[in-house]
């Protein structure tokens, strides 16, 4: 078995919509020593299920265990270890209004985003893109002195 150490992986977990299900999933990761890089969860429309997307890291064996252990949880319907996926992440960044706003807007536009709110002292920009591009965007945004950055975590869908 080839050992790829700490490869980044994205897993989707479809679960029954019940109160403690998220705790079960995260406790499993904590208890068995698996990483969670990011996690998102929301109900699946018109169903009694929720979709959890987990970004994690691990070798082949660890990934196999993670999916199998998730499967064992009673309220888990489906575990998808993404191979060919479309993935997106969103980021909101607050900039001081004193920054060069047209440059900020141009930067956001380059990442398919834009300024979504303008206040007295701050503007808020939003970008939703592939996680890698979001990371680049955040790096590029550093020169405009961002005062707050909030990332959403990854959502993914298999192609």
């Amino acid at each position: 078995m080839p050992k790829v150490v700490n490869e980044r992986r994205v897993i989707s977990v479809v679960v029954m919509n019940e109160s403690s299900v998220l705790a079960r999933v995260t406790a499993l990761f904590a208890g068995r020593g698996y990483n969670i890089e990011s996690l998102t969860v929301a109900p699946i429309p018109e169903s009694e299920m929720s979709h959890i997307t987990i970004e994690t890291k691990g070798g082949v064996k660890v990934m196999e265990q993670i999916t199998k252990q998730l499967h064992k949880l009673i309220p888990v319907y489906k575990v998808i270890e993404h191979e060919e996926m479309v993935e997106k992440e969103m980021v909101l960044i607050k900039f001081p209004i004193a920054e060069n706003l047209s440059n900020v807007a141009a930067l956001c536009a380059a990442y398919n985003g834009g300024i979504v709110n303008v206040g007295k002292e701050m503007v808020i920009a939003q970008v939703a893109d592939e996680p890698k591009r979001v990371k680049h965007f955040i790096e590029a945004a550093q020169r405009y002195n961002p005062c707050e950055i909030v990332r959403s975590g990854v959502v993914a869908i298999e192609r």
Partner: peptide, 16 residues
């Protein structure tokens, strides 16, 4: 109780 017993039960329920 469900929090404490989660890792040492196959499953648990808090009846609501």
């Amino acid at each position: 109780a469900v929090g404490i017993s989660r890792p040492c039960t196959k499953h648990n329920f808090l009846v609501r």
